[in-house]
Computed example of a mutant assay.
Amino acid sequence: MTIAAAASARAASVVRGIGFAVLCYACFSTGDAVIKLASTRFSVFQIAFTLALFALIPVVGLTAGQGGIRAFLPRRWGLVILRGALTATGSLLAWRAFGLLPLADGYGILFAAPMLVTGLSALLLGEEVGWRRWAAALVGFVGVLVMIRPDFATLGLGHLLAALAALTGALGLITLRKIGTSETSASILLVVFLSLVLVTAPMVPATFVLPTWRELGLLALAGLLMGCGQAGLVLATREAPAVVVAPFQYTQMIWGILFGALLFGDRPAPVLFVGMALVVGSGLYTLWRETVRRKVVSLGSSRGEVPARAAR
Rank of each mutant, 00 (worst) to 15 (best):
V292T: 08
S39H: 11
L86Y: 09
L123E: 13
G227L: 00
G17Q: 08
V139E: 07
A186C: 04
E305P: 00
L101K: 11
A162K: 06
A310I: 07
G67A: 07
A277H: 02
R75G: 10
A33W: 14
S39D: 11
A52M: 08
A311G: 14
E127W: 06
S182E: 15
E305H: 01
G130L: 02
M1C: 08
L120T: 11
A113L: 04
G78N: 06
M1W: 08
L219V: 03
E239K: 05
P241Q: 03
L160R: 00
Y107T: 01
S185R: 03
P150M: 09
P202W: 01
I179D: 07
V144C: 12
V139N: 05
S301E: 08
F54R: 04
A136P: 00
L216A: 14
I109L: 02
G260Q: 11
A94S: 14
V244T: 15
S187M: 03
A308T: 05
D151W: 02
V209E: 15
R133Y: 09
G256L: 00
A240D: 12
A71E: 04
A240P: 09
E290I: 05
G223T: 06
T251P: 00
A311I: 14
R177S: 03
A135M: 10
A170T: 09
C27A: 15
R76P: 05
G217W: 02
G265S: 06
A113E: 01
A135I: 07
Y25E: 05
L161E: 11
S29G: 02
L123D: 11
A4W: 06
R309G: 13
L62H: 07
A48Q: 10
W77D: 07
P114Q: 11
L23H: 08
S185D: 08
G106A: 12
L233K: 01
T291D: 01
T89S: 14
L101S: 10
L120K: 11
G281P: 03
L176R: 00
V34C: 03
G156L: 07
G19E: 10
G227A: 01
G119F: 15
S302A: 15
V191C: 02
A11C: 01
S91V: 10
L176T: 10
L73T: 08
R303M: 04
V117Y: 05
V209T: 15
V292M: 01
Y107E: 01
P247I: 02
L79T: 08
G260A: 11
M203D: 03
L198V: 15
L219H: 00
A269F: 07
A122P: 13
L120H: 13
S302G: 08
G106L: 12
L157K: 06
I35L: 08
T40A: 15
